[in-house]
Design a protein around this nucleic acid. Structure first.
Lengths: 400, 400
DNA sequence: CGAACTTTGTTAGAGACCTTGCCAAATTTG
DNA sequence: CAAATTTGGCAAGGTCTCTAACAAAGTTCG
């Protein structure tokens, strides 16, 4: 029902207005009272009241006078950065990345660590906890100051069993309750677990090519294949959280059943698939997809053939995605998407022209590279943390 | 930014509360003041004030006393049905259907007319306008009483050019500005034009199998193929309004370029595709898909083979859809989906088990049949009309 | 059949919030 | 240094909602 809205009393009205002021300060940065009055439509006394409350809750702070204009100098306010801290953790297949940022998103400390591989969940969590403590020390804050932690991992997070599905590279995490171990990484703070590719899409929307775009998709091609979907500016997860798991899309020739267990698209289009095809066509000494792409750039005919085949596979998969979602843009990310973007974007877009009913959406290579997941986790965390700190502050100290 | 909300004054608060009361009456039907107070959390005096305002605006009316319980009899209120009228129009390929309903959704008059075919847009609009006038007369209301008209048509509605794309069966409607002709069908009221399959999905969500479901898709298989997508309970249209145009999905064998101009999935899975395959396999006297399905039910081996192939094509297309969207349910509708649901549901679900990564969503046959589009148009219209009449009433007569 | 009980609806008083209008303070401009 | 301009604060007034008490109208039980 579109007619909705909850019934409210005047106290709720006050909270709504304070929230609006808080949000406006985030949007505008350093801002004066008259500017806030202008932006929110509220009167000067109301703005002053709201600011007094927010300052008492230590969510904002006065930052000094703005002089230079005619008239009395305005006292500027800004978000108090230390009002919240967000820990973002990218638990990748080969690397672990962590970043600690304050409430305005400035990164105070970060780590990139190579994984040894084969850790048990307990070992992994212990390691991450140690790294988190290092970050917190480095930033000069306390573990208890962390507002929220966001983890990005492969696989999908099953809320019923608290386990990870479809994450073959994280052994032991499929067991019921395993994910709850992550609660121990950073103090008592709440935590979120999201699919890594989904987060990369959010990152692309917050800091990359998807800024201000309502509907787009990020296709992640590397050792595996996945897709993150942003609809109406928000991450779309699907019913089971499996939206965008396109590795199983039926693409390419051959008996689909042969490829059971690994997705059909994944088996032909992932890094391994590229290497396999190159070898099959007679290339020598190829150990990684990067070798193939480098050879193609150098003019190797067989390598170019492999690239063309790869582009064709991607185009066919994207044709299905586009037919279903009709996005404004498709971003290619992940190892292959980012490394070979220059080689693939053109042929993929060309191929799509024959496969798509209407206009072909923009096809772009991600500009965020390996940072996408971490940035997405940070974006999710910051958004959520802003709500959390406000909710807490308003709940604790209600009236004036 | 998740922290949002607009700043408000107390006058806005009053409107919010009145809107909440209005919505609650829609939800509960005949309802007393104490029940409204309970449901909205507002106090008795506030409920009385809101009801007085709503009654003065002629949006609700007292309906009598509820006696029987202990204590004083409660005065019941309900939505005044005549507070708004919605005209729903399904402009199909072979039929035109119209329904006129009051604000609570009771259908006061309707028509089902066979199309002559080949009308110009002007002729079609004139015909529809005549039918609309008949409906209005039959219901005993005036053309000016119509709050909103919703049209469902094939093709997608391009807002920039005001034309219909991808609607080969509606000649003349691709011209820029053509759609604006529809404004003349029902007085001065605002109107909406939506894709017919999208509306069918909305109908399924409002009156059919999708009730209370957040994410589902309706696949429409008939003379053409399309899909309507509901995400978070709302219709998802995509960037260009082409979301769910799966007729072009690359499915099945053969050179895709051969099928250019007609979608690849559409060419093999639509009604024509079924007839074509049956003929190719040696069936005689087959003129419609229904013949094939009847023969399959009667035990004809070749027909069963055609059905199996059809199910296989649908399963492969759905595998792509499910990989992207991860819906809770997929409904099969349209001529083939509804008529042959009994034959297809099982094999399609079985086929999907080998093509889908996680749990296969529910696969169901639509229960709404040919009514789906009209019901969807009505659902869209009613939702919008409820907003419209409230907005108008509150804007006209603000305070008490 | 009537008194006690229960629920409904209204009225009065009070509290919370926002706004307008006015005035003081602080800074630039001439 | 005075005029102009902008900022910030204060007081008065209006709107909205809530609580509490009361009146009205039905049922239940003796």
């Amino acid at each position: 029902m579109s007619i909705g809205g909850t019934a409210s009393t005047t106290a709720v009205l006050r909270v709504m207005n304070e929230r609006a002021v808080f949000a406006e300060i985030f949007k505008l940065g350093k801002v004066s009272r008259p500017e806030l009055a202008q932006a929110t439509g509220l009167s000067k006394p109301t703005i002053s009241m709201a600011l007094a409350d927010l300052e008492r809750a230590r969510l904002v702070r006065p930052i000094g006078l703005r002089t230079g204009n005619a008239g009395r100098a305005a006292l500027l306010y800004e978000i108090r950065p230390q009002a919240g801290w967000v820990l973002a953790v990218d638990v990748g297949r080969e690397f672990v990345r962590l970043a600690l940022a304050d409430l305005v998103g400035d990164i105070a400390a970060r780590r990139d660590e190579h994984r040894k591989g084969g850790e048990t969940p307990g070992e992994l969590v212990a390691w991450l906890a140690g790294l988190a403590r290092e970050l917190v020390d480095e930033a000069g804050v306390d573990l208890a100051d962390i507002t929220l932690t966001v983890f990005g991992t492969p696989g999908i997070h099953d809320k019923e069993t608290c386990s990870l599905q479809l994450a073959p590279n994280l052994p032991g995490w499929g067991r019921p309750g395993a994910i709850e171990l992550l609660a121990g990484v950073a103090g008592e703070a709440p935590y979120l677990v999201e699919n890594d590719v989904d987060l990369a899409a959010v990152g692309e929307g917050a800091y990359g090519l998807g800024q201000g775009m309502a509907h787009f998709a990020l296709v992640w091609i590397g050792t595996g294949i996945g897709m993150g979907i942003v609809i109406d500016g928000k991450l779309y997860r699907g019913y089971q959280g499996a939206a965008g798991e396109i590795s199983y899309m039926p693409v390419g020739e051959g008996d689909p059943l042969v490829n059971r267990g690994r997705g059909m698209l994944e088996s032909v289009a992932s890094a391994d698939g590229v290497v396999a095809l190159a070898t099959r066509l007679g290339m020598r000494g190829v150990t990684s997809a990067k070798d193939v792409f480098d050879a193609a750039r150098a003019g190797d005919d067989v390598a170019r053939q492999v690239v063309a085949a790869e582009a064709d596979h991607i185009a066919h998969a994207l044709a299905g995605v586009i037919a279903v979602l009709d996005p404004e843009m498709v971003v290619l990310g992940g190892g292959i998407g980012a490394q070979a973007g220059d080689l693939l974007i053109g042929p993929v877009a060309d191929g799509l022209r024959d496969l798509v009913a209407l206009r072909v959406p923009m096809i772009r290579a991600s500009t965020l590279g390996t940072e996408a997941v971490l940035l997405g986790a940070m974006a999710v965390g910051l958004t959520k943390a802003r709500d959390l700190v406000f909710e807490r502050a308003v709940a604790q100290a209600p009236p004036g």
